[in-house]
């Protein structure tokens, strides 16, 4: 789970299907989908969004969506 990752941790996305359709589409547009390697860059306080990096591209997503993405730590 993304939720358990901290800033600086790296992981590989294994399941993104539980995330809302629109968010899934947008992440796909940015090249982030199952099999992508991501690195958590920072986590905003009070349940705010998190910033992830994939292939040199930084993207901000909300925490509630992030926890629905299943990742495996690498």
């Amino acid at each position: 789970m993304f939720g358990s990752l901290k800033a600086g941790d790296k992981g590989k996305i294994i399941d993104i299907s539980h995330v809302g359709h629109l968010v899934q589409r947008r992440l796909l547009d940015l090249g982030i989908t199952e099999g992508s390697e991501v690195c958590v860059k920072c986590v905003m306080p009070f349940g705010g969004p998190i910033m992830i990096e994939s292939c040199g591209q930084c993207v901000g997503i909300r925490r509630k969506e992030a926890v629905q993405i299943e990742v495996e730590r690498i």
């Binding site: 629109l22 968010v23 947008r26 940015l30 930084c58 901000g60 909300r62």
Partner: peptide, 11 residues
């Protein structure tokens, strides 16, 4: 009902 927040952070 739906809210969407995915933002690209450019270099």
């Amino acid at each position: 009902e739906t809210s969407l927040f995915v933002i690209e952070l450019p270099p």
